[in-house]
Design a protein around this nucleic acid. Structure first.
Lengths: 338, 338
DNA sequence: AACGTTTTGCTAAACGTTTCGTTAGACAAA
DNA sequence: TTTGTCTAACGAAACGTTTAGCAAAACGTT
């Protein structure tokens, strides 16, 4: 590979002028500029970003840690981030944790050694897991989807309790009284908040909380399936089930189909997270939809604002509103068996 | 940030020994090793990967160019790649082209300047678009999903003509004679191949090819929707429609629903690409499923084999077999109207 | 004691940029 | 002519590593 020296030699100038004309960082006479450009083309020179990064102490690279790119929720998030990053010439290093703290730690090390300029992450761990992990003055960090209260960093999240409350209230309005919840990984903030919304809706109506109707699906498809199976086998079966994320909802629907139940006639189903195909296949799922793309974009905006110094001071928490999109998977509960 | 010099000073040794103990690249007495480790912990030293990359001329980073991470097909592919890369300590830079050649070119430049060790890409362009773009002796490149015949590089693809032929034969066996196809972007190799499979199946039965029954959906949801609408409005409506990828199939299903048609009673539907939820919602789509994760994994394997020198010589093309998974969206055609 | 040989650690030169401080030349004013 | 002020380009020192080559110490052998 030709270096800047080769260009300088070919143009008969010093490497300083080559650098200056490339970066427009100092005046170079038009005539020389032209000679330099010629030489660059002639030797097919492409600047080495690594050397540049070393000298400038900035890599124009962002780290992105999420749990699983296979989940359409994260996928839309990523696009929001990627589009913003691309517009600024930044590259994105993608990391999947699969919700494993150990994988996350390894990636954090990797990204640190790669000297990324900033980091966006949906943390896999709980609050206690990050003590002393993000020293002050490190490169900017923004949490997305979930937050770690003990780490002072910007965050963009969604009103999870509001969203969950809204959908459960909707089920209550339809007449349901035995509403089950399939919940996610216990240590993640979104899980708590969605459970809290579920709780608030029930308590507002003076409904007792039945612990039998709350099962964890561990945020996974198989978990959702198993939890649903257990719920459907209950002697007093719930008339509605709320899954707190999309993949558990898939597991839930699998169980429903296997048990030969009709949705919504026999059982109402609702969940968190919307996805493209939810509106075209049957039953058309009613969901609480998150503004995923915008969340990603907003997170990237925050990060760049920190990087560019246009934002400083205390951590910002921006919370966006989810929206209940009502489709066909919920109906009035079936007439009570005698 | 502390540098290797700080560690050396704290341990009372030269930077060479610090480097040697970190990389196990030369003998260092146990006593000194211990002193060095202590010093590293003491000053909280984290090696600078950028400087290391500059010196070693290797970045431990892979570039990944695909069209759209939002498409579950690519998403599974990426996981296959990422898991392999992660196991080797490589980072992955993700690039979405949205099928725009210009975006792809920009990313290619970006990745080149970032000095990635290797590149995996699903090219957005046609054969002619890459002349002189990948000079010999450049870092290894492997095409995935699609290939560019004029560029000598490894490739992992799927038997697209076989897959398409299989599904169309299945429709023919069910008794369909007016089988339409909604096709993808015209310049992409997979589109050609799937059309060819469609063609072969029809011709084998002596069926004439009706150009009216082939519409392009440009690989996009909206395109699939529009193409489907046009097909469904035909005076002699097709009794079956084959969409050559997943997102166009969604558009197709949207059109079917809007037109109040029942699937499979009024119209049979099949497509390329499987996705998780296809099996749990109605109609359960029959698709030709690609081994997406394996494709990604295999591509990464090829790349690493080139990087490690265990593979050399002529470009390899590995072609995997898709499989027809039959579900509920196809049935015998409705009785012909008089 | 003198001499090889091995062991162990160090010095210094890269890697390819950016950038600070300098210089050579041109020109104007004294 | 001298002096001073600009301008345009350059030389050289970083940035933080790895590593080739070297030297000093340690050891065994005669």
């Amino acid at each position: 590979m030709p270096t800047i020296h080769d260009v300088a030699r070919a143009a008969g100038v010093s490497i300083a002028t080559v650098s200056a004309t490339i970066n427009q960082s100092a005046y170079v006479s038009p005539a020389l500029q032209e000679r330099v450009r010629r030489a660059i083309a002639e030797v097919a020179y492409h600047p080495d970003g690594i050397a540049r990064s070393l000298k400038k102490r900035s890599t124009q690279t962002l780290g992105l840690i999420i749990s699983d790119i296979t989940n359409p929720f994260f996928t839309a998030l990523i696009r929001g981030i990627e589009d913003r990053a691309n517009a600024k010439g930044y590259a994105l290093i993608l990391c999947n944790t699969d919700e494993h703290l150990e994988k996350e730690r390894a990636y954090l090390r990797l990204l640190r050694s790669r000297r990324v300029d900033g980091l966006i992450m949906a943390p896999a761990g709980a609050t206690g897991d990050y003590d002393g992990f993000f020293p002050e003055g490190r490169s900017p960090l923004v949490f997305i989807d979930r937050k770690i209260s003990s780490v002072p960093a910007d965050a963009v999240v969604v009103d999870n309790v509001g969203g969950a409350r809204q959908v459960v209230e909707y089920l209550l309005r339809l007449g349901h009284r035995r509403i089950a919840a399939i919940t996610g990984l216990p240590h993640i903030s979104t899980t708590h908040e969605r459970i809290q919304g579920y709780r608030q809706a029930l308590e507002a109506l003076g409904q007792p909380l039945d612990p039998d109707l709350m099962r964890t699906g561990n945020s996974r498809l198989e978990g959702g399936y198993q939890a649903a199976l257990a719920l459907l086998r209950l002697s007093r079966r719930p008339t509605a089930i709320f899954a707190t994320n999309n993949v558990m909802a898939i597991g839930l629907m699998r169980a429903v189909a296997e048990q030969g139940l009709r949705c919504p006639e026999d059982l109402s189903v609702a969940c968190f997270d919307d996805f493209e195909w939810a509106s075209v296949f049957r039953p058309r799922l009613t969901t609480v939809a998150q503004p995923t793309y915008d969340m990603g974009a907003k997170a990237a905006d925050l990060l760049f604002a920190r990087l560019e110094g246009t934002l400083s001071g205390d951590p910002q928490e921006v919370v966006l509103s989810p929206s209940l999109v009502i489709r066909d998977s919920c109906a009035a509960p079936p007439r009570e068996d005698p």
